[in-house]
């Protein structure tokens, strides 16, 4: 997740303090990804070193600095908005590995692994849906963030449905008469 670009975007309308950036980041994303202030300042330091932002004026009485975008920072931000994010391959997707192992490990009922995972995913989906019901439609940024989480979990549930069907079909193929008629 790109904190760097998120902070650049928040600086686009005008200079801001670090603590302001933290609060605005969380307000925009609905606190789905809480930041700690240390992360914010270390990212700001890196951006400053990279010439994408600069301290704007002198520190205030508490030693706090207002940061502003540089032309290079604006360019970086425009590039981020204009280039789609690649679907990264997830070489260490723990869930996919777990299911692959479950299918081939003696004594493990893969269907139970699928069902336990789906139970968890479905519950998360229900919780997210409840959360979404209380976010007003006008709060576009937050609604879209919650939607993003909802669609991602839904994809997992749909995939698990498919896994369950595959496991059932595989079992039926082995013992047709047992499944068809009871």
């Amino acid at each position: 997740m790109s904190i760097k670009h998120g902070l650049l975007a928040l600086l686009a309308p005008g200079p801001k303090y670090g603590y302001q950036l933290k609060a605005e980041f969380e307000a925009t994303t609905g606190s789905a990804w809480p930041l700690n202030i240390g992360q914010v300042y270390s990212t700001l330091q890196r951006l400053e070193k990279g010439g994408q932002i600069e301290a704007d004026g002198v520190p205030d009485d508490d030693g706090r600095v207002v940061y502003a975008l540089t032309p290079a920072g604006r360019e970086e931000l425009a590039g981020w908005f204009h280039s789609p994010i690649a679907q990264e391959s997830r070489p260490r997707d723990e869930l996919a590995i777990k299911l692959a192992m479950a299918v081939n490990t003696p004594g493990v009922e893969a269907r139970e692994v699928v069902q336990a995972q789906r139970r968890q995913a479905m519950s998360s989906l229900q919780s997210l849906t409840r959360a979404k019901a209380s976010v007003p439609d006008e709060d576009l940024a937050r609604v879209m963030v919650v939607d993003s989480l909802i669609f991602a979990v839904e994809a997992e549930v749909s995939w698990l449905d498919r896994c369950e069907a595959r496991l059932r079909n595989a079992r039926t193929a082995k013992t047709p008469e047992k499944e068809a008629v009871q």
């Binding site: 969380e26 606190s31 789905a32 229900q126 997210l128 409840r130 979404k132 937050r142 919650v146």
Partner: peptide
Amino acid sequence: TTADAPAVLDLGAL
């Protein structure tokens, strides 16, 4: 399932 599963996210904040 019910909706009472442990939240994966800080839903209170949402």
